[in-house]
């Protein structure tokens, strides 16, 4: 599904190298988790995959189902099936959440040569999916993320994911800021989307989330590289001992 090879990324404006040769392969239907100390480059990886400005790829490649991602505009990557749930979802005053969702869904359908959903069909699906995430009608009407609590913003990200039905979902610290119940809701939302044709890359600091969303593979990122890869037990090790041992082992 997603193949990242030897990815090197620096900041466009400064001579700061952030990713120093990331290698990562996620098969169809798999769930991978990335853990790693603050500042190790996890969000940067997610931004570079989705095409945010400000980063320069100096070497390496990233492909989604064989198609070169790095060559595409952000909207083309989305239409190709990539989705990023932001660590910090963006507030957009003046754009209604519903308008935003419908515009996004229809833009992707159009890009894929599918018919646009009618207003009625769309409304029905949104309402149903919003309900399972406990997002009420008022939140759908309000401007995108404006005045949403931290947890509401994260739930809204998952709603977008549910509506867009991407193939490759990157979740950047979707668990941060969530209370215990919300974490369950969000995990259920994610698990409901798990399928053979859909893969997940879950960035998190905590084992807790991985209790709900069970990963097939866990990676540890440090200083711009994946330094260790293992099974779910790796997350438990981090939870119990922190990164010191792993970092020492690699040094």
């Amino acid at each position: 599904m997603l193949d990242i090879k030897n990815l090197h990324v620096k900041l466009e404006e400064e001579d700061k190298v952030i990713l120093k040769g990331v290698n990562l392969s996620i098969g169809s239907g798999e769930v991978h988790a990335i853990m790693g100390p603050n500042g190790s480059g996890k969000s940067t990886l997610s931004y570079v995959l989705s095409g945010k400005d400000g980063y320069e790829v100096t070497d390496g490649e990233a492909a989604l189902e064989g198609a070169d991602l790095l060559d595409m505009e952000p909207e083309e990557r989305a239409a190709a099936g990539l989705f990023l749930a932001f660590q910090y979802p963006v507030e957009i005053p003046g754009v209604g959440n519903m308008t935003f969702l419908r515009t996004a869904v229809n833009a992707q359908r159009k890009a894929r040569g599918e018919d646009e959903l009618s207003a009625g069909e769309f409304l029905k699906v949104v309402r149903e999916r919003a309900k399972t995430l406990k997002i009420d009608a008022d939140m759908l009407k309000r401007p995108v993320n404006v005045g949403f609590s931290g947890g509401e913003k994260k739930r809204n990200e998952i709603l977008q994911m549910a509506m867009l039905e991407p193939k490759m979902c990157v979740l950047d610290e979707t668990d941060s800021g969530l209370d215990v119940d919300a974490m369950k809701l969000v995990s259920e939302g994610v698990n409901a989307l798990r399928s053979e044709g859909r893969s997940f890359l879950v960035i998190t600091h905590y084992q807790r989330l991985l209790d709900h969303i069970k990963p097939d593979v866990v990676h540890i990122m440090a200083d711009g590289r994946i330094i260790k890869t293992g099974g779910p037990e790796l997350a438990l090790e981090v939870e119990n001992n922190g990164y010191a041992d792993i970092l020492a082992e690699m040094a």
């Binding site: 505009e73 909207e75 990023l84 957009i92 515009t103 833009a107």
Partner: peptide, 27 residues
Amino acid sequence: IDETALFYLQSRGVPKSIATDLLVLSF
């Protein structure tokens, strides 16, 4: 134009030109 909002919209599949218009209309 708020570049962060623009990227957020694009990352959801909204083409840049339409995303820009949405932000203009919201303004």
